[in-house]
Design a protein around this nucleic acid. Structure first.
Length: 359
DNA sequence: CATGCGTGGAC
DNA sequence: TGTCCAAGCAT
């Protein structure tokens, strides 16, 4: 849609060019990716599906989410089904996906939608924002994608695209407010859902973090970042803190019938509500006397194969101690025996799967 | 506003 | 191998 086609544009005073939304929407029409949670052109996906996908996609890649999304949808086809499920089942199905507060909030949100809204997701950004696990991004994503409401779901893709379009010289996270304000200037007059998804696709396939494919970008003529010759430097980022290493000992108590001693973690915090093998606390300098933390008195034998795992804000090095016990051994309070056939039904996070692999 | 909160893949 | 990164939220 060239400005010259409009006679009035010639007379208008010169005004800072805003990248035209039509260019992006046209590109999206031609290149829209097929994704399990994305409706065909001209249609809208059910709000529950948008909701489920958006929660799963928070800080998580499309490739990782795919199988979880399919499994959840099959097991809990609608919000009522999810709301009626026991939390333990939801956590178990979520195991391996990470950021487990999302699973707890997903479940709480389903219940809230049933209780507060009769099982219908609200279309209002503000009402969505009130629900557990739904923040500014997800509220805007559901409002725009599921309901085609005017909203800007500014995620990492949007931030990168906008930072480059305007060559924003302020680093993240401080630049967030400015990026959001600039993002709002880009919105079209209609087609909000398509525009939101187009921004994400552009960021995921063209305006990528490392080597953006500017030659294929519909907004290249309008991009200040491209004009600088080094668009990939945007968005600028503040230096991040180093990641410390914590150490501990995990206790693999194995009964003669193969059952392993397991417990559940506290409902909130790191790996909240997930299942685990008992262990010492995980501390930066390790634990002085691990034996004092053993779940039961036994002949503990150190395996010479520590488990290493990297969390978002620390690395973990876990030594594993094993003890073999008679089939009659009772589980201490707060613990339970789980046989290998039962592992899949447990909510073991990845680090615990690594520990159990030492069996 | 900074920090806590997972995981696996790419380079 | 280490570093960065992916459709953020809660506190």
């Amino acid at each position: 849609m060239p400005a010259a086609a409009n006679p009035a544009a010639r007379a208008a005073p010169p005004r800072k060019a805003v990248p035209p939304p039509e260019a992006l929407l046209g590109w999206y029409d031609r290149h829209r990716r097929r994704l399990p949670w994305r409706a065909e052109a001209g249609k809208r996906e059910a709000p529950y599906r948008v909701f489920l996908s958006e929660i799963m996609l928070q800080q998580t890649t499309v490739v990782t989410v795919r199988p979880y999304y399919a499994a959840f949808l099959k097991r809990w086809p609608d919000v009522e089904a999810l709301a009626a499920a026991p939390l333990e089942e939801v956590l178990s199905a979520w195991a391996g996906l990470g950021y487990y507060a999302r699973a707890r909030n997903l479940h709480a949100c389903a219940k809230a939608v049933v209780a507060r809204h009769g099982g219908r997701f609200p279309a209002d950004e503000a009402a969505l924002l009130d629900l557990p696990g739904i923040g500014p991004y997800t509220a805007a994503a559901i409002a725009s994608i599921a309901f085609d409401r005017r909203a800007a779901p500014v995620d990492g893709n949007w931030e990168r695209v906008v930072a480059r379009l305007f060559a924003v010289d302020e680093p993240l996270p401080k630049a967030r407010a400015k990026l959001r304000a600039l993002a709002l200037t880009l919105l079209p007059d209609e087609g909000y859902g398509d525009f939101a998804q187009a921004m994400m696709d552009l960021g995921a396939t063209i305006c990528t973090p490392r080597k953006p494919a500017c030659a294929l970008c519909p907004w290249r003529p309008d991009c200040a970042g491209y004009a600088t010759g080094a668009p990939e430097v945007y968005p600028l980022k503040a230096a991040k803190a180093a990641r410390p290493t914590r150490r501990g000992v995990a206790f693999l108590a194995v009964r003669a019938d193969g059952a392993v001693l397991v417990r559940s973690r506290p409902a909130s915090g790191l790996l909240g509500g997930m299942s685990e093998v008992p262990s010492t606390p995980w501390e930066v300098d390790g634990v002085a006397s691990p034996a004092g933390h053993a779940p039961l008195n036994a002949q503990w034998c150190a395996l010479n194969a520590p488990v290493t795992h990297v969390f978002s804000h620390f690395a973990l090095e876990l030594d594993v101690w094993r003890a073999d016990l008679s089939a009659a051994t009772r589980a201490p309070a707060g613990h339970r025996w789980v046989r290998p056939e039962g592992f899949d039904a447990e909510a073991f996070p990845s680090v615990m799967r690594k520990v159990l692999a030492k069996l």
